[in-house]
């Protein structure tokens, strides 16, 4: 592991003094399959500063998606604590977690996950249905979000009338429309060609740099990971910094890495990722 960074010039590096948005301590996750317990994640420690753009890489079955789900409040850890935006989410009930996600997390999925019967603007408006905003205001905010992703001229289009790249940009607009502090992206460029992938990555970078959104992206694509300010590697439940990690990120996670290496045990290859 070296200390050199290959971050593109356009990236704004998170300040060393940036507040911590996500704090993970001793987190483990295990599943029981057919009477056998699979330890997918074990003893992970991690701190993610607000406004950073972090890439989470690793082979299939390494627990990337499991970790992403835990940090986004989609699942709860078997052990350890997770604090996001100053709130312990590992002890929240299902209902509390849902409310937490509605307020703090935006999701971008590999397959876009747009609702096919809704237009672009209606898809973007979806998260706002959980707020008490009046209809006109919801629509206004959805229009703004679509403008941010450059799709103001596609508002009335159904997903099937959009290209893959456009669909993913609509999904990004949906992820930011309620102004969450954290955006989690699970293989956001996995289904896209290079040009569309670059456009999506440019957008995510913009969100991190200009809107101070904290972005946590799972990816297999080294080119996509290069856009991140921090690259984390997860393998068999063990977390480490990538060889090209930014020094700031190294400083922020060095303790965690040491703990993770000390505590982690190999997880089953069959474990969910």
């Amino acid at each position: 592991m070296t200390d050199t960074t290959t971050s593109p010039k356009s990236y704004r590096e998170p300040a060393a003094s940036a507040p911590i948005l996500i704090s993970v301590k001793g987190v483990g996750k295990s599943y029981t399959r057919g009477g056998e317990t699979l330890n997918v994640l074990q003893g992970l420690d991690l701190e993610i500063p607000e406004g950073s753009f972090q890439a989470l890489m690793g082979p299939s079955g390494s627990g990337k998606s499991t970790l992403l789900h835990l940090l986004a409040g989609l699942d709860r850890p078997s052990t350890g604590t997770i604090e996001v935006a100053g709130r312990r989410i590992d002890t929240m009930s299902e209902g509390e977690l849902a409310r937490f996600r509605a307020e703090n997390v935006g999701f971008v999925f590999q397959s876009f996950n747009l609702i096919p019967v809704l237009t672009a603007i209606e898809n973007v408006e979806l998260p706002l249905l959980l707020t008490k905003l009046p209809s006109a205001e919801r629509k206004r905010r959805a229009q703004t979000a679509l403008r941010v992703v450059g799709l103001e001229d596609r508002m009335g289009h159904l997903p099937k009338q959009l290209s893959g790249g456009q669909e993913q940009r609509v999904a990004i607009a949906r992820a930011i429309v309620h102004d969450p502090r954290l955006i989690v992206a699970d293989e956001p460029t996995g289904d896209l060609d290079r040009a569309s992938a670059d456009e999506v990555l440019r957008l995510l970078t913009k969100l991190s740099q200009e809107l101070q959104k904290t972005i946590l992206m799972v990816t297999h694509d080294p080119a996509a990971a290069e856009r991140a300010t921090v690259r984390l590697h997860l393998d068999k439940g063990r977390l480490s910094l990538g060889p090209d990690a930014h020094p700031v990120a190294r400083a922020e996670t060095s303790t965690s890495e040491a703990k993770a290496e000390a505590k982690s045990k190999p997880a089953s290859e069959e474990s969910p990722s």
Binding site: A72, L74, E94, G95, A98, R99, F100, R101, A102, E103, V105, F107, F109, S111, N113, I115, L126, P127, L130, R174
Partner: peptide, 13 residues
């Protein structure tokens, strides 16, 4: 999967 997406966004059961 769509219901999963909605739940992820914060929609309740």
């Amino acid at each position: 999967f769509e219901y999963g997406t909605l739940r992820a966004m914060g929609f309740q059961p």
